[in-house]
Design a protein around this nucleic acid. Structure first.
Length: 588
RNA sequence: GCCCCCGUAGCUCAGCUGGAUAGAGCAUCGGACUUCUAAUCCGUUGGCCACAGGUUCGAAUCCUGUCGGGGGCGCCA
C-alpha cells in the first residue's frame, strides 16, 4: 500500500541498471502522468549517457521489464511514447488490492521515519504584557502543524514557546504594575487588554523622568534577583501566559504552560556561554563590545559584521540568549534538529547565530538548525494587515470575527441545524478557515488575508474540505452505518479488493495511495501547504466521484467498495486536516 | 552600496530535486437540483511563467544579468 509511484520506482531500477550496463545506478525518474498512471523519464538521460538514441534505450528497458516479469500483475500497459518516455498503466486488480490494504491501517500507509530525531520546535513566542496579534498567527499555526506532522512520523518533538519575558521593558512594566495596583492590573490583563497596559506604561516612561529612573532601578533589581521584584514579575508573567492560553485554546493549538521557555530561562546560562566562546578563541573586542565575526557577513560599508555577544555597557542581548538557547537544546535536551518558526526578517540574525554556534562546536552534525521562515499577512491593499485604527489586528478579535462570519454562513446555508450544532460547526469552520488560509500557501511568501475567500465553500479552503468530509458522514448516516465498524468489518478480509470500474474511483484510489509521499514531502521541507494542496485535490476528486458514482443505490459489491472508498477519503481528510490542527465536522 | 526573499491568467494561488499542449479557484459567459447535503458539479473564455542571455535532447523549474515589489545590514528583542 505504498504510493504506486514509489513501488514502480523501486521495481524499475534493476531494468535501468541492467540496460546501463555499468556501475553507476540510474534514477528511473518515475512521476505521475497525464498520459498514463505513471511515466518513467529516466531513459532520456540514460540515452545521453550511453550516446544512443533515446527510444532504443527505452525499448530495451521495456523489453527487459517484459522478460523479467517484475511488473506482472502490477502493470497492464507498458509502452514507449514521445522522445523516450515509458508510460505505465496500473492494473485495476493491483490498485484495488493496494487501496484495500489501507482499510485496516490506522496510519493510512504512512510509515514512521527510519531514524527518529529529537526535534525542538520554537514557535509562537508572544511577548509578556503585549497583545497577541496577526504577527503571531503564522508562527503559532505553522509551528503547531509541524509539531503534529513530525510527531506523527515518530520523531520526538519538543515544543518550546520562547516568550518575551525578560529585558529592559520589564522595569517599566513592573513599576506601572505597582502604580496601578496588582489587582487592577490583573483585571485589565485578564480581560485581554494587554496593549492598554503596555501603552500606558510606555506613555508614562516617555513623559516622566522620575518614572524612567524608577524603571531603570527596577530592571537592576529584577536582574539581581530581588525577591519582591521577582514576585511582581512572576505575577505579570502568569497573567500574560494565562491570557495566551485562552488564545491557544480558542485557536486549537497544542501549546500549554509546560512548553514555556521564555528568555528569562536562559539568563543563568549566559555567563558560561560567553566563557565558552572566549575559550574557543572566538570573542573579539570591538569598540568596547565583545563580539564574534562569523565569515560571510558584512555591514553597510562592506566590513565584517559582528554578532554582538556583550554590549559595551556589559549587558547581554538576544544573540547571547539565542546562543545559550542552542546549547540548552542540544546539550540538555539532546536535540539534533532545531526548528525556528520565525518571520523572514530574522533570517540574517539566525544565520549568524547558527554559524557562531557551529564555530563554537555546539551545532555539529548530525545536529542542525533550520530557520522555518514565513512572510507577512497582508491586507487587501497588499500592505501589512492593520485594523481600522492602524494598529496590529488583535488575534482574539480576528478569531471571534471568523467564528461569527462562519456562524452567519452556516445559519444561511443550513437552517435546520439546532443552535448547539450550529455553534460548534461555526467554531470548526471559522477557526479552520483562518488556519487553513495561513497554511495553504507557500509559507515563504506573503499572503493576502481575505475573509470572503477563506470562508468560501469553493476553492482551496477549509470549508470546502470540511464539506466533503461532512457529505461522506452524511452518506453513512443515511445508510445507518457506523463508519469505523463498517471499515473494521472488511479490514481483515483479503478478498475485499476494491473494484475500480469507474474512472473517478480509479483516480480517487491513486490519490489515496499517494498520501505517504505527500506527508514525506511536507515534512522534508517543513511545508504544510503541500498537505493542503493534496487534500484539496483529494476533495475535488471526491466530489467528482460523488457526482458520477452513486454509493447507496449501487449494486453489491460496488456499493460496499464505494462505501469503503468514501470511508478512506473521510479518514484521509480528517487525518490530514488533523495534522494541520484543523478539526472536521460530521455535518455542516 | 552590499545581502536575502518574492515576481505564473483580470484577482488569489499551485506547479520549481528540469520532462510531453503550464494547472486550480474566483471573476466572465453558458448549462445541471422529483436522485447519497446544488454549501456542489459540468462546460467556456483567459498566459511571450517580469525581461534578456546561458546550460540542456528538453527550462516556469538550474546559472548570470536587468527591471519591479518587500525585507535585512553593530551594541532593542
Amino acid at each position: 500500500m505504498a504510493d504506486p509511484i514509489t513501488t514502480l520506482d523501486n521495481l524499475l531500477r534493476p531494468a535501468f541498471d541492467a540496460v546501463a550496463a555499468d556501475a553507476a545506478p540510474v534514477d528511473p525518474v518515475v512521476r505521475a502522468s497525464e498520459h498514463a498512471d505513471a511515466q518513467a523519464n529516466g531513459a532520456l538521460g540514460l540515452a545521453k549517457r550511453l550516446g544512443r538514441p533515446p527510444r532504443d534505450v527505452a525499448d530495451e528497458i521495456v523489453a527487459y521489464l517484459n522478460d523479467s516479469g517484475v511488473l506482472d500483475g502490477i502493470c497492464d500497459g507498458i509502452e514507449v511514447a514521445g522522445p523516450g518516455f515509458i508510460n505505465l498503466s496500473l492494473s485495476p486488480e493491483f490498485l484495488g488490492a493496494e487501496v484495500a490494504a489501507l482499510i485496516g491501517d490506522e496510519r493510512l500507509g504512512v510509515a514512521e521515519a527510519d531514524t527518529a530525531r529529537t526535534v525542538v520546535i520554537d514557535y509562537s513566542a508572544p511577548n509578556v504584557a503585549k497583545e497577541m496579534h496577526v504577527g503571531h498567527l503564522r508562527s503559532t499555526v505553522i509551528g503547531d502543524a509541524l509539531v503534529r506532522l513530525l510527531g506523527f512520523l515518530g520523531h520526538r518533538v519538543i515544543r518550546e514557546n520562547h516568550i518575551g519575558d525578560w529585558g529592559r521593558p520589564f522595569g517599566m512594566l513592573i513599576e506601572h504594575l505597582i502604580d496601578i495596583g496588582a489587582d487592577a492590573a490583573g483585571e485589565g490583563l485578564s480581560q485581554g487588554d494587554l496593549d492598554g497596559f503596555y501603552k500606558a506604561a510606555n506613555a508614562k516612561f516617555d513623559a516622566s523622568p522620575e518614572f524612567q529612573e524608577r524603571s531603570r532601578q527596577r530592571v537592576v533589581a529584577l536582574q539581581s534577583g530581588d525577591a519582591e521584584t521577582t514576585e511582581l514579575w512572576l505575577r505579570l508573567v502568569s497573567m500574560s501566559t494565562d491570557y495566551f492560553n485562552t488564545v491557544y485554546r480558542q485557536l486549537g493549538v497544542l501549546l500549554d504552560d509546560d512548553d514555556l521557555m521564555g528568555e528569562s530561562r536562559y539568563q543563568d546560562l549566559m555567563a558560561s556561554t560567553i566563557e565558552r566562546l572566549d575559550a574557543a578563541g572566538l570573542l573579539v573586542d570591538s569598540d568596547g563590545a565583545r563580539v564574534v565575526f562569523p565569515d560571510g557577513f558584512t555591514n553597510r560599508d562592506g566590513d565584517p559584521l559582528p554578532l554582538i555577544i556583550q554590549a559595551r555597557t556589559g549587558g547581554f542581548n538576544y544573540a547571547t540568549s539565542d546562543l545559550s538557547c542552542v546549547i540548552d537544546r542540544v546539550e540538555r535536551l539532546g536535540a539534533d534538529l532545531l526548528l525556528y518558526v520565525v518571520g523572514a526578517p530574522q533570517r540574517q540574525h539566525l544565520e549568524m547565530v547558527f554559524e557562531v554556534a557551529r564555530l563554537a562546536g555546539w551545532l555539529a552534525p548530525p545536529a542542525e538548525a533550520v530557520h522555518v521562515s514565513f512572510g507577512n499577512v497582508l491586507g487587501a491593499d497588499r500592505k501589512m494587515l492593520r485594523s481600522r485604527s492602524g494598529d496590529a489586528v488583535k488575534l482574539v478579535e480576528l478569531l471571534d470575527e471568523a467564528v461569527e462570519r462562519a456562524a452567519a454562513a452556516v445559519a444561511d446555508k443550513n437552517p435546520d441545524l439546532d443552535d448547539a450544532a450550529r455553534a460548534e460547526v461555526a467554531r470548526l469552520v471559522g477557526i479552520g478557515s483562518v488556519k487553513y488560509a495561513d497554511l495553504s500557501t507557500d509559507r515563504i511568501r506573503d499572503y493576502v488575508f481575505d475573509w470572503d475567500r477563506m470562508l468560501s465553500f469553493d476553492g482551496n479552503t477549509a470549508p470546502y474540505l470540511q464539506y466533503a468530509h461532512a457529505r461522506i458522514c452524511s452518506i453513512f448516516r443515511r445508510a445507518d452505518l457506523d463508519r469505523d465498524a463498517f471499515a473494521a468489518q472488511w479490514s481483515d478480509d483479503p478478498t475485499a479488493i476494491i473494484g475500480l470500474g469507474h474512472e473517478a474511483e480509479r483516480t480517487l484510489a491513486k490519490r489515496l495511495l499517494a498520501y505517504p509521499s505527500v506527508i514525506a514531502a511536507a515534512a522534508a521541507g517543513y511545508e504544510p501547504h503541500t498537505v493542503c494542496t493534496y487534500l484539496y485535490e483529494l476533495s475535488q476528486e471526491f466530489t467528482a466521484f460523488y457526482e458520477h458514482c452513486p454509493v447507496l443505490r449501487a449494486e453489491e459489491p460496488t456499493r460496499r467498495d464505494r462505501l469503503l472508498l468514501c470511508d478512506l477519503v473521510a479518514r484521509t481528510l480528517g487525518h490530514g486536516l488533523g495534522l494541520l490542527g484543523i478539526d472536521v465536522p460530521e455535518q455542516m
